[in-house]
Design a protein around this nucleic acid. Structure first.
Lengths: 218, 218
DNA sequence: CCCCGATCTCTACGCCGTACAGTTATTTGT
DNA sequence: ACAAATAACTGTACGGCGTAGAGATCGGGG
């Protein structure tokens, strides 16, 4: 059929869309990461979710690693601190840390990516600023602040990693790896150790750490 | 050539070997992980390194996840504590933690796998026992010991995750993500923050944490 | 009106994990 | 001693992956 009306805007066999945006791509990537974990995120699936060909994504992100960075950084940047200006600095830090922890753990895959490799974008930069600002409210500045920020990030990442590594059946899996006689103390502690309230563990560890921060800052 | 000497042990066109062992497979996997990071570990490459067909591996490990678990657990299990019986418990814990940290960070990929998902094998079980045993030397037992072990693991995993996320160029990458005016405090701290001695950071954080452990245990 | 650059599609390549079906070497039962 | 069972391995194939490269199609500026 070569000679019929060519002027009508009949949609050609493959539709074309001009409005695919980076934001939409990242949104769909977050969906996939939340619903199916890290393994569910593939360029082809993101493209499908956007109603687009896989290669279309590459006009907006470079490669998969770039998309992963954007995705995780956006989740991080979306975590908002308590806005009350007179919340004590320790409370503010602890609550922000808990929110951070929860945001990462609520998106299976996001946390896994975060603890594994450098995610440095605007979200992370702003988060770092927020930590220093909160420490400054407590009078912690200079070298002490860098040490405190280090410790805070370390404990928070550790908690995320720890919870990612602690499956519901830790107890059963820990027992039986080795003859019971070789791990008597572990067996005695197994119930306390397998306890699954990760946030309580995080709060306790963070409070201890902040005690150290305060003592070091005099 | 059907009628010639069949009794001689001439190797048939495709060699068959009866000596492929799980240990060899795991050894080769560790090599790949150390030399090329997590991305370098594929079933096909492990098979190549063993001089064997990819599918041969599956007679020993089930699937790739199983192989990864075995591999990481072996690295963990190979970390040996100070054998001196009269080393103070805190020193012993700190030194063991440093060895643990180093072992994971010296094998790019092993650490990345460890902080991301459950690795529970004999190596991990024995490590857990070792921690409880060392704490007991310091008189920390019962519920306090479970809390202390939690905190120790948390800080240690956090340090590994932290170092994996801190590329050589953190400084440059952190700056420029956001207008400088939005992150004045971060900019003031950037040199201290980008400092790269991960072990020093780990030791400081761990000491603070152990202070908390001791105070909590009275 | 035409051309240009941005945006998107199509096709293809090489790698991946692994299912399934042989093939052979060793062990076991008699 | 020999057949049958089993364990250890090979070969082939499938579907999915990231992405390179070469068009196609379109809005907008000369």
């Amino acid at each position: 059929m070569p000679a019929t009306s060519r002027t009508t805007t009949t949609t050609p066999p493959t539709r074309r869309r001009r409005d695919l945006s980076l934001d939409e791509i990242v949104d769909r990537a977050i969906d996939l990461l939340r619903d199916g974990g890290e393994a569910a995120l593939s360029m082809r699936r993101v493209a499908d979710a956007c109603g687009v060909t896989p290669m279309a994504i590459y006009h907006h992100v470079g490669n998969k690693e770039g998309l992963l960075n954007l995705t995780v950084d956006r989740v991080i940047g979306a975590i908002l601190p308590d806005a009350e200006p007179d919340t004590p600095w320790r409370t503010r830090l602890v609550e922000f840390g808990c929110a951070f922890r929860r945001a990462l753990l609520d998106h299976p895959g996001v946390g896994a990516v975060f603890v594994r490799r450098p995610i440095i974008g605007p979200g992370f930069a702003r988060t770092t600023e927020l930590i220093f600002e909160t420490l400054a409210r407590g009078g912690i500045t200079g070298a002490a602040a860098a040490e405190a920020a280090d410790a805070f990030v370390l404990v928070t990442m550790g908690s995320v990693a720890n919870d990612l590594s602690r499956p519901p059946d830790v107890r059963e899996r820990l027992l039986g790896q080795v003859p019971d006689a070789e791990t008597p103390r572990m067996i005695g502690q197994i119930d306390a150790y397998a306890h699954r309230d990760g946030e309580a563990r995080y709060r306790r560890a963070l409070e201890w750490m902040l005690d150290g921060v305060e003592r070091a800052a005099r």
